[in-house]
Nucleic acid binder design. Sequence first.
DNA 1: GCACATTTTAAACATGCGTTTTAATTTAAA
DNA 2: TTTAAATTAAAACGCATGTTTAAAATGTGC
Lengths: 210, 210
Amino acid sequence: MAKRVSTKDKILNAAEALFAEHGFEQTSLRQITADAEVNLASVNYHFGSKKALIQAVMARYLEVLMPALDRELAELAQRSQVTTRAVFDCFREPLNELRQVRKHGPTIFLSLLGYAYADIQGHLRRYTMDHFGDVMQRLLATLHLANPQLSPVDMFWRLHFVLGATVFAQVSGPALREIAAADFGEAIAADQVIDRLIPFLAGGVDAPTE
Amino acid sequence: MAKRVSTKDKILNAAEALFAEHGFEQTSLRQITADAEVNLASVNYHFGSKKALIQAVMARYLEVLMPALDRELAELAQRSQVTTRAVFDCFREPLNELRQVRKHGPTIFLSLLGYAYADIQGHLRRYTMDHFGDVMQRLLATLHLANPQLSPVDMFWRLHFVLGATVFAQVSGPALREIAAADFGEAIAADQVIDRLIPFLAGGVDAPTE
DNA sequence: GCACATTTTAAACATGCGTTTTAATTTAAA
DNA sequence: TTTAAATTAAAACGCATGTTTAAAATGTGC
């Protein structure tokens, strides 16, 4: 019954896979359109520009993740006791829901996020900051509930360290898992990296200040 | 008395500044040679290729940092008590010595390292891994002294989370410090970011496993 | 001061990029 | 079925990149 896939979706699917593997700047429209088996010009026809395509790729995930994360954080805030660990656990389910967008949605999205942040001076930084600014603020607030001893500026920095460790683990995830498998003879699935990551992050945020 | 600076050094100095700010791939030889006030072709004449120039830029720092870090780690290993925190403090002095190479050597180097890791599939990953492999092994061993309860594979992953948070903090450091200054009216120097980072990292590594 | 090697210079080369154009084709409405 | 709109297609445009070439300039040893 092979469903008909629109040119627009073919482009989005091919683009996000290449973006997640090689980054935005290093992926050309020619690679994308070749993988998608569509004409080169169709990207500019359907999206207007490469910039707009990148934003469309991100938007597909953000529109699923953001409301879900909001929901989880709001639910958590109502509890009497809020721990750092519980805050990070709020990410588990929303990330999982990204599988609705794409089979490996969680991994793809975090890779994209990594490249978005690596692209410091670009439009994407502003774009993601605009969309993530709200969640950041909510995160800061909720984490502050769990760690009232930390000053806002301390929390600000620690949250960004968290983001760095997360993003890095995903972007270099495939290579790292390969090394780990070779060194320890132990294969580790992408999802299990998150399980190793969360205790680390919680420990870092909960650490006493200097 | 203005010392005569060789073309080779002029290129290295201009290149590392641009690399640290914009990344390797996004910096063109034309930008570099313009800043260095040398001819475009001189890069290929003196270094052979852009790849080789990138490696030369990194090598200048690695050759200072590596022996210093070795020294510190060896010294620490002789003590009776080894804490995670003490291991990370081993980086302080070696990083500081990078000022001998360049005034803002520590910041520049960590930025370069960040971009080197972001460039996943490139030659630089292999190059830096080759040079950092030894130190990684030593780091793993020393950290295991401080945390015998962690399995090697757990330690492996935590060390990479550490690297991620560090690298990320530097790469997006200028932008983050700007945001922090705007949000909190508090300027934070690049060196102070390390002070905030180290407690976080130690807390993460010392955290109990799942 | 001459001859030879080293270095610098300007120009061109080949390639890949995002984008635009123009025409052909398909789709949908009347 | 006819007509207009939407989409696809092929080709070219303009530009930026790393690299190479070949000549000019500079430096070096005898």
